[in-house]
Design a protein around this nucleic acid. Structure first.
Lengths: 339, 339
DNA sequence: CTGTTAGCGCTTTCAA
DNA sequence: TTGAAAGCGCTAACAG
């Protein structure tokens, strides 16, 4: 009468056999006669049986679930990474629990607790802006839950990560600007506790150095990666007593904000100020055809990270893998198609 | 020596008490002395105990997990909806399993099976483009798993949904174009098995009718919601023997494709052709300042859908709720800020 | 090839 | 206020 679900015992009883045989049949074990298997499978579908993964997982001490922690799902880079993760995981028979830290360390901690309590088999994480202390990650290590950083990583010992070639991408970007005759090149950076922004900054400096352009502190503006920061940053560099003719933007959202503001105040891109910014599939085609972008495929990063994590999961007993996968980016220059 | 996790029995044994008392204490039951509670909690944190939700859920027949099915995570509308869902669910102590159907009915079915097997407490679903048959949803009904449609719904009996005011939004959009002196107004539509596109189409027709503009079949171009469709659709309407001066686009991705193509062939928006398109928070500000948009907040829809679902979940035993929540959209006109 | 048995870690009666 | 015992649904020895 109630919400009674069909169990293997029900099937066993009806068929007059033992429930373990049913279990084996349902798992397609070779240790069950084909005839019995057929009978069981038939009855199972007839009754609308559906395996209870909770019970199965509890017994097997494995959940076929991976946890994913991102700062914010709606950021295009992360949503496309998640798309890649989900797809790869789905193919391998894994579920994905998605959580967003909303850039808060507190939340990140609490999420990790939840994931641990749910006994996920592994974790993919892109750390929050606030995360400067990594004790909560040690919890994962202690519990021997494999985890892989993607995009926003941090430099703790013995970890795996999937990142883009930040330094080189930045270097190429700035060199590109220099070749386009920019000399006063500003850099819109991100939080310096995040390795990716540190490395992009280093790439910026290295390119200047190579081309004997003096580095100026005031041309580097950091921010908290919001769209409004783009506008504010532009104001800051425009207030300088000399003309800025190039801009290397380390974050797509900030780039969007910057470009919108530049449009508003009628400064032309790339004629008045040439810009190179990090971006990704969709945004880059939409954002501004005149913007040269460093394309990073979220999908690809998600896929790579998931594959690496799955490898670590199935490898558990053997020696640990501590791998760094670098996903290549590429510079795409667009001719302005604006009238 | 192995990956031995701390259980309530470990705590009980150490403290020389019974595991059920530990369980009660950890659940903050009033039926255990404060002194014992303190002792237990202290020992638990000391040992780094973490409740095994699998076991707990199995016993309680409840998972505090909701399943979410969307066509594609990386679509901005869906990723912002998911952001809203995750946030609302997280607050209520629920986990979220995200799945993408990739617009395939087959996958949608298989996902529902997985979610059932995982004993999710409820499901939020935005159906795929291919979904014209709803038998797989009946499975949810039979199992009494509450589910709520959001955005892309279908008209099966007794269901709950959170949608936007498609008809009115479309009507307003087209009326807006008419007021801007467009008379030959094209409509880029979507799959007509999806109610939302049906209703947007109806709104388009109604507005024309009200203003005594004859409806012309050839001005309506449907598509499979890809960016490339935007370009193709534009080609189709430009091939018509008269000038199109208005366009109502029922899908943001198609709108993006259309605008890019128009730019490429040097047709000015909105001077040569006025456009109103559905859009959402981020995209709308980026896509094209000259485009008037119907803004739909994915976040808000996700939040509303989750709240409705949670209400249904906790209401399980009592009478069913079959509610339709309509989230209002608003038309945002932008002045072109392009040079 | 199939059955018996024990138990994954937790909650929840029932009894004391 | 605590303990004893049963069992959620499944799997995995171990027997036979």
């Amino acid at each position: 009468m109630d919400n009674t679900e069909i169990t293997i015992h029900d099937i066993a009883e009806i068929l007059g056999i033992n429930s373990s045989t049913v279990s084996r049949a349902l798992n397609n074990s070779s240790r069950v006669a084909q005839k019995t298997k057929d009978k069981i499978l038939k009855k199972a579908t007839e009754l609308g049986y559906q395996r209870n993964h909770l019970a199965s997982n509890l017994r097997k001490r494995k959940t076929f679930t991976i946890g994913v922690i991102v700062p914010r799902i709606s950021r295009h880079f992360f949503s496309s990474a998640i798309a890649g993760i989900e797809e790869t995981a789905f193919k391998a028979g894994y579920n994905v629990i998605i959580c967003q830290s909303l850039e808060s360390l507190e939340r990140e901690k609490s999420i990790i607790d939840t994931l641990l309590a749910n006994r996920v088999d592994g974790v993919l994480i892109s750390i929050s802006m606030e995360t400067k202390n990594y004790d909560h990650l040690k919890g994962l290590k202690q519990r021997k839950i494999p985890f892989v950083f993607f995009d926003r990583h941090c430099d703790i010992a013995e970890n795996s990560k999937v990142v883009i070639d930040d330094f080189n991408a930045a270097f190429t970007a700035v060199e590109h600007l220099i070749e386009k005759n920019s000399t006063n090149i500003a850099h819109f950076s991100g939080p310096q506790n995040l390795e990716i922004y540190k490395n992009r900054f280093k790439g910026y400096k290295a390119a200047l150095e190579k081309h004997k352009i003096p580095f100026r502190e005031e041309l580097v503006v950091s921010s908290s990666l919001m769209e409004k920061d783009g506008a504010q940053n532009v104001q800051k560099i425009l207030a300088l007593p000399y003309k800025i003719d190039g801009l290397f933007c380390a974050n797509d959202v900030v780039a969007i904000g910057a470009i919108q503001y530049l449009r508003k105040i009628k400064i032309r891109v790339p004629e008045d100020i040439a810009i190179v910014g990090f971006s990704n599939e969709t945004i880059s085609s939409v954002i501004e055809p005149a913007l040269t972008t460093i394309n990073q495929s979220g999908m690809q990063i998600g896929e790579a990270a998931t594959n690496l994590l799955l490898a670590k999961i199935s490898n558990e007993n053997k020696k640990q893998i501590h791998e760094t996968i670098i996903v290549k980016t590429n510079l795409i220059e667009r001719k302005s198609t604006l009238r």
